[in-house]
Computed example of a mutant assay.
Amino acid sequence: MDFHFNNFNPDQVMTFGLMWNFLPMIAALLVHLAFSAAVFNDANRLQKERGAVVFVNSWLWSLAVLVGGVLVALAYWVIHHSNLARH
């Protein structure tokens, strides 16, 4: 049995492959945006309640999470909300 992809031209195959390569990048971008927005809202709330956020302003924390992703969001959480922050 011989399989031939006569119905697909090379441009269609390339476009299909590129689409699947971009999906993880789009998903990562959406995660970065969501975490950045959440950190921005939380940092603004902390600024109103406590008067300040550790190290930098809320918008700079948000920018750091946007660039650094989940690891920077984890660092933000450890600094502001974990048991380590309360000691």
Rank of each mutant, 00 (worst) to 15 (best):
A75Q: 11
V70N: 00
L60M: 13
S82F: 05
E49I: 09
F3A: 07
Q12I: 12
A37G: 12
L30F: 11
D11T: 05
W61I: 04
W59S: 12
R50V: 10
S82Y: 01
V72E: 07
F55R: 11
M19D: 04
N9A: 14
N21L: 15
L33G: 02
A75E: 01
N7H: 04
N57P: 14
K48H: 09
H32Y: 03
N6R: 01
A75L: 12
L18G: 07
G69Q: 04
V39D: 10
G68E: 13
L74H: 02
V13S: 11
N21T: 14
V56L: 09
V39H: 09
N9H: 06
L33D: 04
A73M: 09
A28S: 12
F16H: 10
A34E: 08
F35N: 09
N44A: 02
T15S: 12
V56N: 10
M25D: 06
L29W: 09
L71T: 04
S36A: 14
H87E: 08
N7I: 03
G17P: 01
R50Y: 15
N44S: 01
F22Y: 00
L33Y: 11
P24A: 15
W77Q: 04
P10V: 08
I26P: 00
K48Y: 05
M1C: 01
S36K: 05
W59Q: 07
A52G: 06
